[in-house]
Amino acid sequence: MKLLNCPVNGVRPLSEFIFGGECREMPNPETSTDLEWASYVHYRDNAPGIKKEWWYHSPSGTWFIAERNTLSDEVLSTYLHGKAPAKNTKEQSA
């Protein structure tokens, strides 16, 4: 069984977690066209690669973000939503 690192509770077996799907930015509902909105609710960035995903640690009720490679199942980092580790920001800006 896979292990996952909950940012609050540490490394726990996968059976304690619930997958919450890809973490996606909601377009502004007031300015987006019908088609843009329909595209947001229905379509997914579904090719394999490194994705930002929602995961839920069930016993403690913690939602967090995991950056995971959906091809290799390797988890690169986990953090609470909106609290991406500083290291990542650096890499992005570099």
Binding site: I18, G20, Y56, G61, W63, H81, G82
Partner: peptide, 19 residues
């Protein structure tokens, strides 16, 4: 309840959920 928790985190509102 899970969805409540998720949206609360996204919306970052000054509120707490107690199950």
């Amino acid at each position: 309840y899970r969805e409540m928790q998720r949206w609360l985190q996204v919306w970052k509102l000054n509120a707490t959920l107690i199950n």
